[in-house]
């Protein structure tokens, strides 16, 4: 009885809390369906939903529809996520478990790279990519993810690996496994939840990295969703309805990604791994 009742209490808390968190988003949905003259009214829902905000926004340009921009972005994301997941764990294992020369120094440098605001490195970086003819391409956006996925993810996985008992490594060593074997068979399965978070964050954060995208992508043919959204905002005039509609759609892939990926980072693999 008490267990069941406490369960309902938890559900109730969760429902109320979810609604509180999601309320602005419901407002957003309502606003995206409003005609311009209703936009300033406090009512959350329009008197007559204007679904044309979605269809007109989707086809706002004669040349390309949003389908084109979504597929561009998703293609880029595949590269980004693949690169980060592939390399972040490798690098993190090196830093977390292997005692090599100058490890402390390199790790310090790794952390330092996060502390310098990108606003001051982005111009030299642009000059660098320009001198090898790689601007107006996805390379400057995707390539960095193949080099460990960035300090944030490396440090994150380092912390997770440091939480794994060393007994497991030692047992594997006694069984004759090399460091590479330990990484592959012991560590990698255990940090899977952390890797899933790496995948999610890479996806979400590179989705609206506007500044880098506007610098490196010039032709509209290559535009991402984030860039296409800015086309609704001109110096004076903003296409409010279409902007709100399309930017709401633009977060849907990230939300889906989160929804489907989450069971992996909460599946409790770590526990079963420990027992094995």
């Amino acid at each position: 009885m008490t267990v069941r009742r406490s369960k309902w209490v938890v559900h109730l808390v969760l429902i109320v809390f979810s609604l509180l968190m999601i309320y602005p988003v419901i407002w957003w949905l309502g606003a995206s369906l409003k005609p311009l003259d209703e936009m300033r009214l406090p009512a959350i829902w329009p008197s007559k939903p204007m679904w044309s905000n979605y269809s007109d926004g989707w086809h706002f340009s004669d040349q390309y529809s949003f389908a084109h921009f979504f597929s561009n972005t998703l293609l880029m994301e595949v590269g980004n996520v693949f690169g980060s997941v592939l390399t972040a764990a490798l690098v993190a294992y090196g830093f977390a478990r292997l005692n090599f020369k100058l490890r402390g120094m390199w790790f310090g440098i790794l952390l330092l790279t996060m502390m310098l605001p990108t606003q001051v490195t982005i111009i030299p970086q642009y000059i660098l990519y320009n001198s090898v003819g790689l601007v107006n391409s996805y390379v400057p956006l995707v390539l960095p993810h193949f080099f460990g996925g960035g300090a944030f993810f490396i440090f994150l996985i380092v912390q997770f690996i440091r939480g794994i008992p060393r007994d497991l490594d030692e047992a594997a060593t006694i069984d004759g496994a090399s460091v590479y074997g330990i990484f592959w068979r012991v560590v990698l399965p255990l940090v899977k939840p952390a890797l899933v978070t790496v995948a999610i964050f890479t996806f979400i954060w590179s989705w609206d990295d506007f500044f880098a995208q506007i610098l490196y992508l010039s032709s509209v043919e290559k535009f991402t969703v984030a860039l296409a959204l800015r086309m609704f905002i001109d110096q004076f005039e903003i296409q409010w309805g279409q902007l709100l509609a399309m930017s709401l759609l633009s977060v849907v892939p990230s939300a889906l990604m989160f929804f489907f990926a989450q069971k992996h980072f909460v599946s409790g693999i770590a526990t079963t791994g420990l027992k094995g």
């Binding site: 690098v91 090599f100 982005i122 193949f146």
Partner: peptide, 28 residues
Amino acid sequence: GRNVAGYVFISPWLIGFLLLTLWPIAQS
């Protein structure tokens, strides 16, 4: 052996750092 293994594992980051990150940082 540990040194070699260590640098093998961190090489993706190290290469990226030396090629793509170091110069812009030094520039700034």
